[in-house]
Simulated assay, not measured.
Amino acid sequence: MKHALLLTAGLLFIASAAQAQDVPAGYPGTYSKLVADAKAEGSLRIYTNLSEDNIAPVIKAFNAVYPNIKVGSLEMGPSEAFSRYRAELGTGIASADLLISNTIVDWMSAVKDGLLADYTSPEREKLPKWSYPEPGLYTFSTDPMVTIYNKITVPAELQVDTMAAYFANISSRPDVFAGKVGTYDGRYAFGGALNYALVQKHGEKAWQWLEKAGPSIKPGGGAGGMIERTLSGEFSSAYFVSAPVVFSKVADGLGDIIGWNFPKDGTVVFPRGMGITAKATHPAAAKVFLDFLLSERGQAAIAAGKLTPYRPGFVAQGDLAYSLDEVAKAVGGKENLIIIDYDRKMIDGNAAFSARWAAAFKM
Rank of each mutant, 00 (worst) to 15 (best):
I148M: 02
F167K: 02
A193P: 00
S109N: 14
E75I: 04
L74G: 03
Y85C: 05
E52R: 04
R187Q: 12
V71L: 00
Q159I: 01
V176C: 00
Y149F: 14
R86S: 13
T153D: 14
P78M: 11
I152V: 15
L158Q: 12
L89M: 14
V58G: 00
P144Q: 11
K126S: 15
G114P: 04
G179N: 07
E157Y: 14
N54P: 00
A156F: 09
N63S: 10
N102L: 06
P78G: 03
S131W: 05
S141Y: 04
P133V: 06
E75Y: 13
S172F: 01
L127S: 02
S73C: 11
Y66V: 01
Y138G: 04
M145C: 05
S131Q: 08
T120R: 12
L137I: 15
D97T: 11
G77F: 10
D161Y: 01
S73F: 10
L74V: 15
R86K: 15
T139F: 10
F167W: 01
V176I: 14
K129G: 12
F82V: 07
I59Q: 06
G191C: 06
K151V: 05
P128V: 13
L158R: 07
P78N: 14
G179E: 11
M145K: 13
I55L: 09
A168Y: 00
V105C: 01
D185F: 10
E75H: 11
I93G: 10
M163P: 01
V176D: 00
A87T: 12
L98D: 07
S109R: 15
L50H: 00
W107F: 14
D175Q: 10
A56R: 12
E134F: 15
K112M: 00
P135A: 11
G186V: 00
V58K: 04
G114R: 09
F177R: 00
S171C: 02
S172P: 01
I170P: 06
V105A: 10
A87W: 11
I59N: 01
A64K: 08
L99F: 06
K126L: 12
L137T: 09
D113Q: 11
I100D: 07
K112A: 13
L74Q: 13
D53Y: 08
L50A: 05
P174V: 03
G182R: 06
G90R: 08
G92Q: 06
F62W: 01
G182T: 03
M145A: 14
E123D: 09
L115H: 09
I148G: 02
G72T: 14
L115Y: 12
A164K: 14
P67E: 08
F140A: 12
G90K: 11
A96Q: 10
T91L: 12
S95Q: 12
E88P: 07
L50D: 04
M76I: 05
T142G: 08
T91A: 12
D97M: 10
I93V: 14
T147C: 09
Y188C: 04
I59W: 06
I55D: 03
L99Q: 03
Y132I: 08
D175P: 07
P128A: 10
S109I: 08
S73E: 01
P135C: 11
A164D: 15
A189H: 09
S83L: 13
V160Y: 05
I170M: 02
V176K: 03
P57L: 07
S172V: 02
P135N: 08
T120I: 08
K151M: 13
A193E: 13
I148N: 08
V111D: 14
D143E: 14
Y132P: 00
